[in-house]
Design a protein around this nucleic acid. Structure first.
Lengths: 212, 212
DNA sequence: GCCCTCCTCTAACAGCGTTAGGGACGCTAC
DNA sequence: GTAGCGTCCCTAACGCTGTTAGAGGAGGGC
């Protein structure tokens, strides 16, 4: 059976998860597919556009599993959950955030964007505000995921960093935080995401109900 | 006069601004310095650590010019301005966001972090909340800058994209947004950043003054 | 005069994305 | 039956990349 472009993209997604963005070369990808490197150019115009397809695939998987908002459901909780799911999707696929960043929304993604924005407009936001909010949440999620991956790569190569090793007297507030939060671990990153999303949502609520 | 590491980092910052992250090669950097490529390895361990130094330099420049908060000044306005300044610094240096992303705060940056967090704690936030907020704002700024650069790179190669070319009937909310916002231009990106920051700050305000 | 450290060099390796050009398979038309 | 054509894959090669090995010159201390 002849190779299809979907096969190439599938293999690229797998290889990305395995070796990261830096390790993903066309020669390696071709070897994985049992094919010579230039052959890939028959199925894909460019490495860059291959990555576009990969990003599309990653996002498509994420949107396809998204439950639409139910009637009477709280839009805030729904938006929070969607953003968190997107963050988790970007975090579980290695380097996905870097690949996805800057991709134009493909036509496939438009209905999802439309639905999300319609929900916000239905909740009382002006269209312009809904759009800016959606972009803001997106930027925040991407930024969080990029930082997560970058810190992860850093941690892998520097083994152990003496985290609390600074002078507490010089930085009392930092010391208080370190004492209050305990050692850094994986859950910490999601705490930040949750906190940021809550801040944005609270800010939205304040706009929707000026004086409750 | 012999080359110093600072010279190399300086030249790398300039070259980054000129040719972008993809165009920044050690050979090109060496040529710019009038030196052969392997010579750089005397001053710098690695390309990766060179980029670390570049990121440090970019952030240092940005924090050094930061005015501390004045007495009686509104913390919200101050935080907003600091975040916007950081965004602008990342945006004006080409690809700076990608280089900076994931850098641990160097020891030089600690006083600034301490000061910012002390301000938030002074305004009434718990240390943990102040820390999470600072991280959230940072992630949002980085994400916005990454998206800015990525979209910029995309726009450069696809010349003109028929932006409003989709079917308005299929996506009424999107069409309303397109009509309300006009054509995309450079200011749009900062609108998103401003909006996101306002949301977060409004959310913070809601926490600080539960029932004003 | 000798050594030692700094700083720079040339030569080279393996790998990268990408292009040029060709060859084998199967379908369709005459 | 065979000529033509589109599909899919190949080898060879170009110019680039980060990086290493090893040699050598300039300048200071003894």
């Amino acid at each position: 059976m002849a190779l299809t472009r979907d096969d190439v993209v599938d293999a690229a997604v797998d290889l990305l998860a395995e070796v990261g963005l830096e390790g993903l070369s066309l020669r390696r990808l071709a070897r994985e597919l049992g094919v010579s490197a230039p052959t890939l150019y028959w199925h894909v115009a460019d490495k860059r556009t291959l990555l576009d397809h990969v990003a599309e695939r990653l996002l498509a998987d994420q949107w396809r599993s998204a439950p639409p908002i139910g009637p009477g459901e709280d839009w805030a909780a729904w938006l929070r959950e969607r953003a968190l799911a997107q963050y988790r999707a970007l975090v579980t696929h290695r380097d996905a955030a870097l690949v996805v960043a800057g991709n134009r929304p493909t036509d496939d993604a438009l209905p999802a964007v439309e639905a999300t924005m319609a929900t916000l407009v239905g909740a009382g936001l002006a269209p312009r505000e809904a759009f800016l909010t959606l972009m803001s949440v997106g930027h925040f999620v991407i930024g969080s995921a990029v930082e997560y991956h970058a810190e992860r790569a850093r941690a892998a190569e520097t083994a152990a960093v003496p985290h609390g090793g600074h002078d507490p007297a010089a930085h009392p507030t930092l010391a208080a935080v370190a004492a209050a939060m305990g050692p850094p671990d994986g859950a910490r990153h999601e705490d930040v995401v949750r906190h940021g999303l809550d801040l944005m949502i609270d800010g939205l609520r304040a706009r929707l109900d000026p004086a409750p």
